[in-house]
């Protein structure tokens, strides 16, 4: 049975994840319209790429933009969630063992206690972000069951992984639950707001291009203010 969920079910999940996210990116680019968006995609491309990369990099840097700096607590929780959320699945030692034995891919691995701390950080951050969603009116208005459900899907692999790692109440059960919740996350990405996994880069690139060219980015080369 372990064969099934780490075999066919895993491949189906990967297929849905990759095809779904790729479709998102293709549709995003396909639907760009310089007239409607009022973004200069075709002209001053180098300035555009520079602005896009700048926007992506600064928004990925903790406290790198003004919006991150004016909400320091939220920013902290956000990064606690996302740093662990990205590093742990990719560089966990146990995942490395599977990657190596299955596909011969050898990745650097995190020490166990670091991965453990990051996982706990992810779970604490989810609690914090959920509380924020409930008490801040500007985000409460945007929150429905679907958002909460997405958050649960996102944190489930970390919670089940933590339980499996510490073997709290049946390590094998939690490992199976961990694999299944991870697959559920992969499947959910294209169909929920988790698609920001790729769309973040698309929209930041688009806005970055806009600001890099038109909205002040090219001031230095004689553009009118």
């Amino acid at each position: 049975m372990y064969h099934f969920i780490t075999g066919p079910l895993l491949w189906v999940s990967f297929a849905i994840f990759f095809i779904g996210t790729l479709t998102h990116v293709v549709l995003y680019v396909k639907n760009l319209d310089w007239e409607l968006d009022r973004v200069s995609y075709g002209a001053h491309t180098l300035w555009g790429i520079r602005g896009a990369l700048r926007s992506i990099c600064l928004w990925m840097t903790p406290y790198g933009t003004r919006s991150w700096r004016i909400k320091p607590l939220y920013t902290f929780m956000f990064y606690l969630f996302h740093v662990g959320g990205v590093l742990v699945p990719l560089f966990l030692s146990a995942h490395g063992v599977i990657l190596k034995s299955r596909w011969g891919i050898s990745l650097p691995t995190l020490p166990g206690f670091v991965a453990d701390l990051l996982t706990v950080g992810v779970m604490i951050a989810v609690v914090g972000l959920s509380i924020r969603r409930c008490i801040r009116p500007e985000v409460r208005a945007l929150t429905s069951g679907r958002e909460i459900g997405t958050l649960i899907i996102a944190v489930a692999p970390f919670f089940t992984g933590f339980m499996a790692y510490h073997q709290i109440g049946g390590g094998n059960f939690w490992t199976l639950a961990h694999i299944l919740s991870g697959e559920m996350l992969l499947v959910a990405v294209p169909f929920t707001k988790l698609s920001h996994m790729v769309l973040f880069f698309c929209s930041r690139a688009q806005i970055g291009m806009d600001f890099g060219i038109k909205r002040g980015g090219m001031k230095s080369v004689g553009m009118p203010c």
Binding site: Y2, A164, Y165, Q167, G171, N172, W174, T175, L176
Partner: peptide
Amino acid sequence: GPQMCSGCHEKE
């Protein structure tokens, strides 16, 4: 035998 981590690396 087991193929999952905790199947062999039993804590208890």
